[in-house]
Design a protein around this nucleic acid. Structure first.
Length: 816
RNA sequence: GCGGGCAUGGCGGAACUGGCAGACGCGCCAGACUUAGGAUCUGGUGGAUUUUCCGUGGAGGUUCAAAUCCUCUUGCCCGCACCA
């Protein structure tokens, strides 16, 4: 009988669906396990990255299910987004049609992999039954004061014709399409993620199950720094110019002030001075430069005196005010105090423009002479030229100066973050409409809950310029004010799709609820997600937005968990010829073809065997062949052995050996899968077991032992190759699905070795081996080692200094 | 520049708390069965000057013992990048 994977896989996929084998509901009698993989964007085609992601998740889900957990394992679609709109512009297909057809196609492909999802819980973020609640959450955030409108210089992608959040700008380019991002002064909707900056940072400690790499990336992104904010006074008009510094200990060494070129006070201060025109020109020049070239470390520091002065509030010093390319308007206060003696960047700037350098922190052992300085002194030291703080250690002075400023009302101790508020408006059609109404009389009015969802109008015209068709859709645009009943206008912007994916893991717990986003009891049962699996590209974007969203919803009293994802696994990329698979390189391997040629079980097995999940994986066609061969080998082995299930017991020794192999393998596979997610070594242990059984099968084995071996082999392999094992399980005469069976337990007694091999070293080098009974004492080991024929010549005539033994493993004889 | 990761046969990778380096798979070599084999089974496969010696990017160190721990260093990958 051949391994006919096509028939087998189709047969079981159909049966599992008919029996709703993977359907789950809350069960207080069982421990729950929420296994979640990042849902895909429905591009229309599955790629190998998806196959890897979902194969990993499926093994975890199946293993946990067999281990007695009530497993929630759902799948859905991150279905809003620009490609659908581009298809509409290019081919005239409505975005919804395009998206739903893609979903149908990808669902079919996912099902062909035999993944154990509860398909009854499928969600799609573009479904009105879903985005109704996305809008509901927006209103919730609005009520909480966490959603607000503000005019700001925002990132604008000309190609996507929309604004972008900071997180979606990579190297000054649009994260989606790679087009260079510009700046636009627009009024937009923001979420106050900065309110949670501190908690988002601090709670990373509550996530021991996350990779350090991801936590560090988030930490850097949040960018917390402690310092002092205080103000210089503009000499011209007496107005305050606030600055932020992490080095208040150097405040007596300020020799100039630098503002961002866009700083609102620049024009006013330079007006009427001889520098006025030069300043205007400098500002224009800066405007033209894009942000990357302007702020790159490689770009030379460039600045200009603006013709005005400011007074240092600590010592009354009069310092010149400059503008420079390296000062950013949106970090801190957009103004920096210049302390060239103790900041490398300020030092270079002062050298270039011949600004005074004043030493205020002295090294403990010598006196710094400005003339000799080739770089800033940033080490620890003692304060000098600093009035009442002279003689103080500078680390202490950081605190002391801050305190002093607070006491005198000069400034205040402050924590600054790099994190900006999350800009969520998008000038696009294919997204969840922001449920807001603009009324000339009442201003900004939220859409009442009963009117949700604000539906996307289906019949709209797309224009090649890429502007949102909602702007020209009268039936959508015109509405009445919920407050005064007068004519009003709808918000035409839709939400960033990351908003839709910030809460989908809640919806899976109660996907068809029409009254609420979810039932509280169901959510409380399932949340948090126990294991989240996906690509590292979401380390900051999706994973930080979701953490923020969850914290906000916790504060709204809707959820009980501080963190949504307990454990995170970031899978590596799938490479071919050392590079990421891509159209341009022409190195794409299509999952469809592989499944067609070898079957889903082979595809899954290979992808899990070739590399541990968190590392990159090099695709190998020959490796796939190998996995296919292995499954055929298993098939033949079980075919043959299942004829011998009633054999008589003949020889005790072989039975014991087979049982030892079986139980050792159970332990190895269990440990590898449960504790380390090392599927590659788990599979190799199963391969060793199969190799072992091939060797033993030439001998007489009792039927009971064969049965035990065959059944356990199938159980261990079931999470990896679910179709084939199910088929063979049925052939063994089993009535119930193998995937509902309990995970096998190992028997320590059966694992016990009777004889053990001890390595004998002389001066740390292996010189021989001795076989001893498992009960041998350390004394027995030493004795056996010294008496061994291979060892004797090495120690003859030498002085044995000492002997080190590792029980049941090794003896090391140290000689001189 | 800062932060993080990785480096082991021809290749993908094993070696969990320091204790037989190279499990398992691919590839390669040989044999068996065969009209035939790109099927299957069995055996072999780090290197060399092969009673032994050398080998985990490189150089030191700790230890009875180091792929594993420490110091320095090289190469590659990823993230952040004038953050005040």
């Amino acid at each position: 009988m051949n391994y006919d994977f096509k028939t087998i896989e189709a047969k079981w996929q159909k049966k599992w669906a008919e029996q709703s084998l993977y359907k789950v509901k809350e069960d207080p009698g069982k421990p729950k396990y929420y296994c979640l993989e990042m849902f895909p964007y429905p591009s229309g085609k599955l790629h190998m990255g998806h196959v890897r992601n979902y194969s990993i998740g499926d093994v975890v889900a199946r293993f946990k299910r067999m281990s007695g957990y009530n497993v929630l394992h759902p799948m859905g679609w991150d279905a809003f987004g620009l490609p659908a709109e581009n298809a509409a512009i290019k081919h005239g297909v409505p975005p919804s049609k395009w998206t739903w057809e893609n979903i149908d196609n990808m669902r079919k492909q996912l099902k062909s992999l035999g993944l154990s999802y509860d398909w009854d819980r499928e969600v799609a973020t573009c479904h009105p039954g879903y985005y109704k609640w996305t809008q509901w959450f927006f209103l919730k955030l609005y009520d909480m004061g966490l959603a607000y409108r503000k005019k700001a210089f925002v990132n604008w992608c000309p190609s996507c014709a929309t604004v972008l959040a900071n997180e979606q700008v990579v190297d000054g380019k649009c994260e989606r399409c790679g087009t260079e991002v510009g700046k636009k002064d627009l009024e937009q909707w923001f979420f106050k993620i900065t309110n949670y900056a501190d908690e988002l940072l601090k709670d990373l400690e509550k996530l021991p199950g996350w990779p350090d790499k991801v936590k560090i990336m988030q930490e850097n992104w949040i960018g917390r720094s402690e310092g002092v904010e205080f103000s210089f006074i503009a000499e011209k008009n007496g107005r305050r110019i606030p600055v932020f510094t992490t080095r208040p200990d150097t405040v007596y060494g300020v020799s100039y002030l630098v503002l961002a070129p866009e700083h609102p006070m620049v024009s006013e201060l330079s007006a009427g001075t001889e520098q006025e025109n030069a300043v205007k020109e400098f500002q224009k020049k800066m405007e033209k430069l894009n942000e990357i070239t302007r702020t790159s470390t490689e770009t030379e520091k460039e600045g200009l005196f603006i013709g005005a002065y400011a007074i240092n509030p600590m010592n009354g010093d009069r310092v010149p005010i400059w503008i420079a390319n390296y000062v950013l308007l949106d970090y801190g206060t957009g103004a920096v105090m210049g302390v060239p003696a103790h900041d490398q960047r300020d030092f270079e700037f002062a050298k270039k423009y011949d600004l005074p350098i004043k030493v205020v922190v002295s090294p403990p052992d010598k006196i710094l002479d400005v003339k000799d300085m080739t770089q800033a002194y940033v080490e620890r030291g003692i304060l000098i030229n600093s009035d009442i703080f002279n003689g103080m250690d500078n680390i202490e002075a950081i605190k002391a100066v801050g305190q002093y400023m607070e006491e005198k009302g000069i400034g205040k101790v402050k924590v600054n973050y790099k994190l900006r508020d999350w800009l969520i408006s998008r000038q696009r059609y294919w997204g969840a409409p922001i449920p807001m109404i603009y009324c000339d009389r009442c201003g900004i009015v939220p859409v009442p809950e009963k009117d949700l969802p604000v539906m996307l109008p289906p019949n709209v015209k797309f224009n090649p310029r890429g502007t949102s068709p909602l702007l020209e859709c009268e039936e959508f645009l015109n509405t009445t004010c919920p407050q005064c009943g007068g004519p009003a206008r709808r918000e035409t912007d839709t939400m960033d799709t990351f908003m839709c994916s910030s809460w989908y893991y809640y919806r899976y717990t109660d996907p068809r609820n029409t009254e609420r986003p979810f039932d509280r009891e169901k959510l409380d049962y399932w949340m948090p997600v126990d294991q989240y699996i996906g690509g590292v590209e979401h380390a900051i974007l999706h994973l930080m937005y979701s953490r923020f969203f969850n914290k906000a919803m916790r504060d709204a009293g809707l959820v009980h968990v501080d963190e949504p994802f307990q454990n995170l696994l970031t899978q590596g990329m799938v490479l071919k010829d050392g590079a990421k698979m891509s159209k341009s390189l022409g190195n794409i391997v299509s999952p469809e073809e592989i499944i067609d040629k070898y079957g889903a079980d082979t595809a899954r097995l290979f992808i899990l065997f070739a590399s541990p999940p968190d590392r990159d994986l090099e695709w190998s066609d020959q490796g796939v062949e190998g996995s296919f061969r292995f499954l055929q080998r298993v098939w033949r082995l079980i075919d043959e052995l299942s004829e011998r299930l009633n054999d008589e017991k003949v020889e005790d020794k072989v039975d014991k050996d087979v049982r030892r192999l079986v139980h050792k393998t159970i332990k190895k596979v269990t440990d590898d899968v449960a504790e380390r997610f090392n599927f590659n070594t788990a599979i190799s242990a199963i391969m060793e077991m199969v190799n072992g059984l091939y060797a033993y099968k030439e001998q007489k084995i009792s039927g009971a032992v064969i049965k035990e071996a065959v059944e356990n082999l199938l159980l261990l392999l079931a999470p990896f190759a679910p179709h084939m094992t199910e088929e063979l399980w049925e052939k063994l005469g089993k009535k119930e699905s193998i995937h509902l069976m309990p995970w096998p337990k190992y028997d320590i007694e059966a694992m016990a070795e009777e004889e053990i091999e001890i390595v004998v070293q002389v001066n740390g080098k292996v010189k021989g081996k001795v076989s001893l009974s498992a009960e041998a004492t350390e004394e027995d080991m030493k004795k056996a080692a010294l008496e061994n024929d291979k060892i004797k010549p090495h120690i003859k005539g030498k002085n044995v200094v000492k002997m080190i033994t590792v029980p049941k493993k090794l003896v090391n004889i140290v000689i001189k």
